[in-house]
Amino acid sequence: MSRPEDTLPPDLFYNDSESRKYTTSSRIQHIQTQMTHRALELLSLRHPSLILDVGCGSGLSGEILSSSAPTTPSGPHTWVGLDISASMLAVALEKEVEGDLFLADAGQGVPFRPGTFDAAISISAVQWLCNAESSEESPAGRLGRFFNGLYASLRRGGRAVCQFYPKNEEQKRMVSNAAVRAGFGAGLLEDDPGTKSAKTYLVLTVGGGELDGDITGVVKGMEGVDVVDGRRRAKDKAKRGEERKGSKAWIMRKKEQMEKKGKVVKASSKYTGRRRKIAF
């Protein structure tokens, strides 16, 4: 099966007949329902909340958020949905979903004031942000605008769960790094890894507030969770400062490492790491 996001932008791909197909396919409905419940479980909401649904489509996830059934924890919730496909939104309108719908491109940002939402959810949408349809846009720019906007629009202590279909490891890294750069604590959760039904969830937390903002509090103890901690890596890099490869500091550190491994290293002197003049 070809990846739809490789052939057309979502507003063109999800035309009227594709939207209807997507919404009425019981297999897709079942998977979407399952993933929404998983995302809700990861959000661990404590009271009826205001939730942003990014790429809400025809409102399949939204119907679960609005439900007062016990399968929707702490519900019913109130939601606002963004989608770039007018025909998907038309199907949502026909179904009279309870959430407010916006025709909007999340790659252009999130037009809500700071601290609006308790939580955000996104099912099978973020990979679309990795396409840039014109020369004025880059995937990195679109991802940056989305995650910066999302971060600002969430309350302190808020959470977001984005299930997406990364094309490859590189795209997975690009997406999670963009989230970390925006300020989120981020973890990747993989359900059924290595199988045809593998699902990737990017679990994001905003520090502060009543909830444990640290990502390890959310994903700790869950199997197959990788904490994406780009901030720590950046700090380490900063600590090493101007330690360029080949500089004295770099050589001293390498020597120390080798010594620790039990290797014999040359004694250091004031000449260590100095550039030698080339003798003809």
Binding site: I84, F102, A104, Q108, G109, S134
Partner: peptide, 14 residues
């Protein structure tokens, strides 16, 4: 329109 707000921006306004 029909309760749905259009927030798509032309690219020069993004």
């Amino acid at each position: 329109k029909e309760g749905i707000a259009n927030f798509l921006l032309p690219s020069h306004l993004v």
